[in-house]
Design a binder for these strands. Structure first.
Lengths: 253, 253
DNA sequence: TGCAAAATCGAACAATTGTTTGAATCGTTC
DNA sequence: GAACGATTCAAACAATTGTTCGATTTTGCA
């Protein structure tokens, strides 16, 4: 019952088209498959998650996946886009609002970083969206090595990505285009693999634990995350004293 | 001929125990398998590289892998350790030398970063060690999702890792232990996934291109890499002006 | 209640995986 | 040149993968 509701609420868009199960103990097969897929994907990734593992976890017949979703890829595409579409919509919405209002001249970079990551933090606090596991899911998705997953993410969210790249370019005019793209790459890769790892997420929730309410919590996490990322984006190169220090190391090699 | 020599020189330790092939056109099977394995691993990773793909690429019989190496895992373990053992030895040697001499008080962090990455740059310039592809290999290895690869790297190089963590902790005493560990995680994850991606490596070789000799080249790359990483490690959190800027973003959400 | 559509089921499919087998071949040594 | 160990080979192995089939059951509506 409560179980049914909770699972179904993960994928509200699907619920509409589903028949209400008359039998109370029985959860809609489609919903159970989606939930099991997401759970196993977070643990094992796309390639290493077999349809048999999914259907066993969901307690449904093996053939149910192909019957309801067509193929493994279509199933995973649905799971991924279900979660990520709303996230990215919220991201650009926030970016639009910030650009309309105008950034703090002093802290544009920090504000852009906050804009990128706040929606994820908010979704992560919503149990209907996966709660704590949402960040894990996010990390998995962006770190997954399967060509299918990578192409899906690249195709579907390329437009939003360039929006942020352009915004950062405007905020960091002294940075060469290729230098900026390298550092943003850096930033996103670091974030996604960090989210995928257990200990890093524990640390973040530890940071948030000292806060009173939800807004406090987000502010605390962003206050820790922002400066670290901004520090790497704003770093100046080629200072002569640094050059000297590096040459001291090279002397030993 | 030249092909044979080149392949063999990738794995000099094995060459000793191998019989010299009398037939000139014939390259030692073991060596060809190792070279093919490395090539395909860089492209597809551990899981997605099948023994049939390896043996076809190497032009040898399928059974040759199990005959010469025992299993797929033993083969990959050999390929990985062949490349990484010398790298990590050189890393700690350099760290030892730097610690004996004493760091620049002002730029300890930059020097530590240089110590971590200089050996990889030097190996990447050695054609016998894989040349340009060595960095790609490194990125693949540390980003590979297979439990086998991850455990191998963790077990074998855990000791060296803690050496560097301790050194960084000493250089950044104001940073809480868990904060430091998060940021180092960040740094290494970013580096490895950046190395694995084609465009980032192109960028680095573009930076190096303007230099005259090898030492110049390493200095140029480290001068670009160091400040970015050091910037993220040294970032201060909780500055009130930043807090205000972040809250301006939260107001829209 | 009866009927047609939807859903579930067990079973098998073809393809791929790593591994093993036994015979054939090669290379060295006596 | 014979003999013996090392190596190579084609073939098959068992296990796993995604997918499909046809029969059976369940469901919603008349």
């Amino acid at each position: 019952m409560g179980f049914d509701m909770q699972l179904a609420s993960h994928f509200p868009a699907l619920k509409i088209r589903e028949r209400e199960p008359r039998n109370e103990g029985r959860v809609a097969t489609k919903t159970r498959i989606l939930a099991a897929t997401e759970k196993l994907f977070v643990i094992h990734g796309f390639d290493a998650t077999s349809l048999r593992a999914i259907t066993t976890e969901a307690g449904v017949n093996l053939a149910a996946v192909n019957y309801h979703f067509g193929s493994k890829e279509e199933l995973f595409a649905l799971v991924l886009t279900n979660r990520l579409d709303s996230l990215n919509l919220e991201r650009v919405r926030l970016l639009d609002a910030l650009e309309a209002k105008g950034f703090d001249a002093e802290h544009t970079v920090e504000q852009l970083i906050a804009t990128m990551f706040l929606p994820a933090l908010q979704l992560a606090r919503n149990p209907e969206r996966g709660g704590d596991d949402f960040l894990k899911f996010l990390g998995r998705a962006y770190a997954d090595p399967s060509p299918f997953v990578r192409e899906l993410l690249a195709d579907r969210y390329a437009a939003q990505d360039t929006r942020f790249v352009q915004a950062f370019a405007k905020a960091l005019p002294e940075l060469a285009a290729q230098d900026l793209s390298m550092r943003l790459h850096f930033m996103l890769d670091a974030i996604s693999s960090t989210l995928a790892s257990e200990d890093a997420r524990k640390l973040m929730s530890a940071l948030a634990a000292t806060s009173k309410d939800a807004v406090e919590e987000d502010a605390a996490v962003l206050a820790h995350l922002g400066p670290v990322l901004a520090g790497s984006l704003r770093a100046k190169v080629n200072q002569s004293s640094q050059q000297r220090a590096i040459r001291a190391v090279l002397a030993f090699a």
